[in-house]
Simulated assay, not measured.
Amino acid sequence: MYIDLTMVLRPGMPVFPGSPKPAVIQWTKYDVHSYYSNVLFLHEHTSTHVDAPAHFIPGAKTLDQLDVSKYFGNFIAVDFSHLPPRGVIRLREFENALPRGADLGPGWVVLIRTGYDQYAGTEKWMEYPELSPELAEHLAKLGINAVGIDSPSPDRAPFEIHKILLGREVLIYENLTNLDQLVGKIGKFYGLPLKVEGGSGGPVRAVAEI
């Protein structure tokens, strides 16, 4: 069974403060050109997307420089939708939430459900919880492939969590959705972006296979 974890990319959709809203502009028409196509204008970090290490680490790898195997792997999904606004996801709580049989290490993807995908476009959206530095350090030391979350970010300025994870080439997936369907399960995660030269990140079609 496959679960789509991707927000629809559309004009005017919610974006992280300071980012431009995407535009989808019709370029050709059936009745004029005999075929239909659009031109896309969007920030690299729009909708469901992945952050490459170069997003925060000068000189680090960009989307096209990463091994393609970094964009998929075995996943575990944990539920922190019970946290209050701006709550903190701590290491001990994370370890208690892990499903049985999750022996995390290289090749794994950790998916964290906050439930904040349902608030996209509202004021509450930016009240998302954050990962603690202790948890980020733990995940980075495990050498996992990526951390994914169903909110706009795993942290706030000065973005310490981004720097901890990306500094160890642990990719970050943001604005995932439908993680409630994965909690307590183990399967395969796929989130491949376009191979953009020099890309600091890019939209993905994120999918889980159970």
Rank of each mutant, 00 (worst) to 15 (best):
D4Y: 10
L5E: 01
T6W: 03
L9S: 08
R10C: 10
P11Y: 08
G12Q: 11
M13A: 07
V15R: 13
F16R: 07
A23C: 10
A23H: 09
V24M: 14
I25W: 02
Q26N: 11
Q26F: 02
Q26C: 02
D31I: 09
V32W: 06
H33E: 15
S34M: 12
Y36L: 15
L40H: 07
F41G: 13
F41I: 14
L42S: 10
T46G: 01
T46F: 05
H49I: 08
V50G: 00
H55T: 14
I57P: 06
I57K: 07
D64S: 11
D64N: 14
V68M: 10
V68Y: 11
S69V: 11
F72S: 15
F75Y: 15
A77L: 01
V78L: 06
V78Y: 05
F80I: 13
S81Q: 09
L83W: 01
R86P: 05
I89V: 14
L91A: 05
F94V: 00
E95P: 03
L104N: 00
L104V: 00
W108L: 01
I112H: 06
I112G: 04
R113L: 15
T114Y: 06
Y119L: 15
A120M: 10
A120E: 13
W125A: 09
A136E: 04
L139W: 05
A140V: 08
G143W: 01
G143D: 00
I144M: 02
A146V: 12
V147I: 15
I149D: 02
D150L: 11
S151Q: 14
P152D: 08
S153G: 09
D155W: 04
R156L: 12
E160Y: 09
H162G: 09
K163Y: 01
I164M: 09
L165G: 00
L166H: 02
G167W: 04
R168F: 08
V170W: 00
D180V: 11
Q181M: 13
V183L: 06
I186T: 10
Y190C: 10
L192V: 15
K195G: 03
K195H: 04
K195T: 09
V196G: 08
E197H: 12
E197V: 14
G198I: 12
G199P: 09
S200D: 11
S200M: 11
G201A: 13
V204F: 06
V207S: 05
